[in-house]
Write a protein that binds this DNA or RNA. Structure first.
Lengths: 135, 135
DNA sequence: AATATTCTTGACCTTTACGTAAGATGCGTA
DNA sequence: TACGCATCTTACGTAAAGGTCAAGAATATT
């Protein structure tokens, strides 16, 4: 199903759980640009991949502007040396950010695990109480 | 420096790179509630920790409402069984979200590494060219 | 042919998370 | 005492990311 040549707007909204407004908004923002059949939009697999990247970026808390930057890095590695240096710098900045996010996630998961174990203990205490007082 | 009993508002803004407006806003939103000395706010280490949690949540793309929920889980593990079940459910939802984010991060890091290696190859090609044509 | 469905373009509306400016208050100091 | 900060409250402003109609065009269905 994913290697079809075109998708309609509602197919994509259904697949990704978003609205048509959202896809048109991303188009306004130049994040995707679907072909047209008459006036109707036809999304290519490439557009679909872009949407995936956008949504992934959003899950990570990036703004659309930041997501645009990231996607642009994927698109064209420049030919000129100066530009390549700048690209390398951007890549390293994003890497650092992502690694920070990763640390944040690990910390949060650990804290949630702590809360969970406290809750589990309480639950088992309640079970015991129930048994002791006669189920 | 972190185990002082009180911090002023500007101390915290300086430490976290945020504005006073932001701290007052979080207060309006009941995410923190500093004591007062007269009308001036005095932030306890607990408030400071909260701010850290809030900013960490923001880096991970959580809204303030979501952050509030997460912080509330840390605060009071309830005593009643039904509430404990609900808490467990919430914890598992958050865990799943965080694990998704983690996968998103790994994917993005991998893609960035790919872009980086392409860029590095180009750079070395340019180096070679420069040498061949005479530096 | 009439109706329903899908898609289109506008246009204004809403929520979140603050920014920013105005004016008052208190406190140390020159 | 006058000044300069730091802080306070109040209130309007704003950017981002869509939501929500409205009204028309194209296509499909009965």
């Amino acid at each position: 199903m994913t290697d079809r040549s075109y998708f309609t707007i509602t197919e994509l909204t259904a697949e990704f759980g978003i609205t048509t407004r959202t896809l048109r908004f991303y188009e306004d923002e130049k994040l995707i640009n679907p072909r047209r059949h008459g006036r109707k939009r036809l999304y290519t697999p490439r557009d679909r991949t872009r949407v995936k990247l956008i949504l992934r970026g959003k899950r990570l808390g990036f703004s659309l502007a930041e997501i645009r930057e990231i996607i642009e890095m994927y698109d064209h590695a420049p030919g000129e040396n100066r530009q390549l240096q700048i690209l390398m710098q951007r890549i390293n900045e994003r890497k650092a950010e992502l690694e920070q996010k990763r640390r944040d996630i690990e910390e949060t998961l650990k804290e949630l695990a702590d809360v969970e174990s406290v809750a589990l203990i309480r639950i088992s205490e309640l079970e015991k109480l129930k048994k002791d007082t006669g189920s």
